[in-house]
């Protein structure tokens, strides 16, 4: 989980015209933001497109960041909103499962990955996003609520329903 230490100083430097400071923000956040995009879209072509959109938006608007929230909350809000408003242009799917150290036969891994993809894809998009931020990124419900602009209760409820639904959808794999 990102803690965003020093972000506000970097943003101040960007506002003062230091482009190198933006490079540091970019390097710090590109991997975690890409991970959110990938886990949300379940394929790398869409995730790349989203990641690029997000960073262009951030770059374009970073000087309007007014410090009323933590920088990473502002940044993740842009990422989350970009993901939630993303419409898949076509049903792009990766041709095969990514390489993994797990000793499961390739064919089974592909079927398993497809099952996981489909299960996550069948979650309503807010549930999917809350689950991603909570489960993979470890954010607290109040942080997720701030990022997504929903109540803490709604974040908890979305997560609860996401887990229940995943259990139900992936029952045969458990």
């Amino acid at each position: 989980m990102m803690n965003g230490d020093g972000d506000e100083i970097l943003v101040e430097e960007i506002k003062n015209g230091n482009d190198a400071a933006f490079e540091r923000i970019f390097d710090r956040y590109r991997a975690p933001l890409y991970a959110i995009c990938y886990r949300y879209t379940r394929n790398d072509a869409d995730a790349r497109e989203l990641a690029q959109d997000i960073f262009i938006k951030v770059y374009r608007h970073i000087k309007t960041f007014d410090g009323r929230s933590k920088f990473f909350t502002w940044l993740y809000r842009i990422a989350v909103n970009t993901c939630l408003s993303f419409r898949r242009k076509n049903d792009r799917r990766p041709p095969a499962a990514p390489e993994s150290a797990v000793s499961v036969p390739m064919e089974e891994r592909i079927i398993m990955k497809k099952a996981i993809d489909e299960a996550l894809d069948r979650l309503p998009k807010r549930q999917r996003m809350v689950f991603t931020l909570r489960h993979f990124d470890g954010y607290s419900f109040s942080e997720i609520a701030s990022i997504m602009g929903i109540t803490t209760g709604a974040a908890k409820a979305n997560h609860y329903h996401a887990v229940r639904r995943l259990r139900s959808l992936l029952k045969e794999w458990l």
Partner: peptide
Amino acid sequence: LIDKEEIP
């Protein structure tokens, strides 16, 4: 099961 996946 879900965590097995690696991000490319």
